[in-house]
Amino acid sequence: MNLQVELEHHRRVLIVRLRGELDHHTAEAVRTKMDEAIQRGRAEHLVLSLEDLTFMDSSGLGVILGRYKVIKSLGGKMVVCHVNPSVHRLFELSGLFKILAIYENERTALSELEVVS
């Protein structure tokens, strides 16, 4: 499959790095892996890191919004980092950037979440 999900726990924060192409075909695996990691790891917050994401369409918006809802229902916070201009445009069109905080990199995202928790 043309998409890899890398997971890393950093205290109560789950870092999810997506590498490759996020579309309808790869969306389901991303959803399953992220939901499993959220449940298993007792993660409170989530950083979605998109530095190596080479393609995304509206199916990706659906998965991201879905995970945002999961984390929120568990009382946590989800943020995104390394958002390239084309992904940013999709966030703007859909209004997702209004509910998801965007950070430059993992370090700034983490330090923000550590203040929250």
């Binding site: 509206s58 199916s59 918006l61 659906g62 998965v63 999709l90 069109l93």
Partner: peptide, 17 residues
């Protein structure tokens, strides 16, 4: 944002894009 299949986590943004 309209989708006829919200159960599939569709975003309803395809036509808008």
């Amino acid at each position: 944002l309209y989708t006829s299949k919200p159960e599939l986590e569709r975003s309803g943004m395809g036509f808008t894009i």
